[in-house]
Design a protein around this nucleic acid. Structure first.
Lengths: 146, 146
DNA sequence: TATTGTTATACTCTATAACTATA
DNA sequence: TATAGTTATAGAGTATAACAATA
């Protein structure tokens, strides 16, 4: 049933619509009480140790350092994030989650998952779930190299 | 190699990162000269006849009618879109692309595809392309039902 | 010179609230 | 009452430009 050789153009066009619609869904319910999508993403990466300075985070997320700075400032103001000077490099600030930050990222992860998970449960077969899970790393790779 | 029964939670978490990163990539190069992502999406749907009024478009995109109105006003101002009163219903405005609008949506589609297509060509196998193509409708469905 | 980070400013996308006109 | 659309206002996320401090 599948066409034999999908062209990159076909794939690009098909992904654009799905991704932009889904993105709006993903970020919407999370703006309610707590963390926005970029905030969660930043906290998550800090928690995992994927990036521990503002500049490193900005590179990972592929946004400007200034934009990341604004996000981080908002998180610090709410007591979710601590910034301490790097003793080895006076320009740097080492980022770390507070206990409240850790709690928030876990609570919000659950909240997001509840919404998407419900939809997945009700409208997708196990095979389709597997397909979506398999493709997630590919989407991420595409975001990184494009 | 694949786990037997991915839980909806796993899938939701895995998709969130990939989608949000890719979304930023998709919209970034398009803001340069011409159409933004929501603008392209709206023009594309009008061109295909998927929706011909502001309210219908807003429903499809799952944003508020006011937000869609702002997008459409910007497009009309630039001469890409025409709004004519519906003779059958005085409240409605029928939407249609101008020639310039049609040209813009095609030029920009090519520009977007060039960026994503290049990345796809260079970093993905034919099997992975097929996987991405197959999953695009699932992403869209998830955006619709979530 | 290059890097890290900040402040200032602006634009896009989105939302809600309040309104008019039409059905 | 309900629907289509507009205007006004606000907030989040992003960008660039200009700057200070440190390497």
């Amino acid at each position: 049933m599948a066409p034999n050789q999908p062209t990159p153009d076909e794939v690009a066009a098909a992904l654009a619509e799905g991704v932009s619609l889904l993105y709006r869904r993903l970020r919407q319910p999370l703006g309610d009480g707590g963390l926005t999508l970029p905030e969660r993403s930043a906290l998550g990466k800090i928690e995992r140790g994927a990036a521990l300075t503002a500049a490193a985070l900005a590179k990972l997320e592929q946004i400007s350092p200034q934009s990341m700075g604004a996000t981080l400032a908002a998180l610090e103001e709410r007591g979710l994030l601590m910034r301490t000077p790097d003793p080895a490099d006076g320009r740097r600030q080492i980022l770390a989650l507070t206990d409240a930050g850790r709690a928030a990222v876990h609570a919000k992860r659950a909240a997001r998952n509840a919404l998407i998970s419900d939809a997945l449960e009700q409208h997708f077969t196990p095979e389709e779930l597997q397909q979506l899970l398999d493709v997630a790393p590919l989407l991420q790779r595409l975001g990184e190299v494009a």
